[in-house]
Simulated assay, not measured.
Amino acid sequence: MLEEKLKEAIAGELKRQAANRPQALKVDDGGAEELVVNGKIDLAELAMVIAGSVAGGP
């Protein structure tokens, strides 16, 4: 269960970042267990989403 929440949080955040900065980041949902990511990732935002997911946040 925790693993699934983490996967969803990471994928969702990367897709959100790509939608906000399409010139800097591209994310291709290659399948249920894969993402293809090309570009710059804001690690601070990604870490915050992961921490929130682990802590039980939205």
Results as ranks from 00 to 15, higher is better:
Ala47Lys: 14
Ala18Phe: 11
Val37Cys: 01
Ala55Asp: 13
Asp29Tyr: 04
Leu46Met: 04
Gly30Ile: 10
Gln17Thr: 06
Pro58Lys: 09
Glu13Cys: 11
Met1Gln: 13
Gly57Ala: 12
Ala18Cys: 10
Ile10Asp: 01
Ala11Ile: 01
Leu43Lys: 13
Leu35Glu: 01
Gly56Cys: 11
Pro22His: 11
Val37Lys: 02
Gly57Arg: 03
Gly52Ile: 09
Glu4Arg: 06
Leu46Ile: 03
Ala55Arg: 10
Asp28Trp: 00
Ala32Met: 05
Pro22Met: 10
Val54Lys: 01
Lys7Met: 03
Ile41Tyr: 02
Glu45Val: 08
Asn38Met: 02
Ala51Cys: 01
Gly57Lys: 07
Glu13Phe: 03
Lys40Tyr: 09
Pro22Tyr: 12
Glu34Gly: 04
Ala11Thr: 05
Glu4Lys: 05
Glu33Lys: 05
Val54Glu: 03
Gly56Glu: 11
Asn38Tyr: 02
Ala44Phe: 12
Gly39Pro: 08
Gly30Glu: 15
Ile50Lys: 00
Leu43Arg: 14
Ala19His: 10
Asp28Gln: 10
Ala19Gly: 13
Leu46Ser: 03
Leu6Cys: 03
Glu3Ser: 13
Val49Asn: 05
Asn20Arg: 13
Glu34Ala: 12
Leu2Lys: 11
Gly30Phe: 06
Gln17Cys: 07
Val54Arg: 00
Gly31Phe: 09
Ile41Ala: 02
Val37Tyr: 03
Glu45Lys: 08
Val37His: 01
Leu25Arg: 04
Gly30Gln: 15
Arg21Glu: 13
Val36Thr: 13
Arg21Asn: 14
Ala9Gly: 05
Ala24Ile: 03
Leu35Val: 02
Ala18Met: 09
Gly30His: 11
Glu33Thr: 09
Gln23Arg: 13
Leu14Ile: 06
Glu4Asn: 05
Gly39Ser: 09
Gly57Leu: 07
Glu8Tyr: 00
Gly52Asn: 15
Gln17Glu: 07
Lys40Cys: 00
Asn38Thr: 11
Ile50Gln: 02
Asn38Val: 09
Val36Leu: 08
Asn20Met: 11
Ala44Gly: 15
Gly31Thr: 09
Leu2Trp: 07
Asp28Cys: 00
Glu3Ile: 06
Gly12Cys: 04
Lys26His: 10
Gly12Leu: 03
Gly39Leu: 07
Glu45Tyr: 00
Ala11Val: 04
Asn20Leu: 15
Leu43Glu: 14
Ala24Gly: 00
Ala44Val: 14
Asp28Val: 08
Glu4His: 08
Ala32Val: 11
Leu43Pro: 04
Ala11Glu: 06
Val54Trp: 00
Leu25Trp: 08
Ala44Lys: 15
Glu45Leu: 10
Glu3Ala: 15
Gly57Met: 00
Ala18Asn: 08
Gly12Ala: 10
Asp29Trp: 04
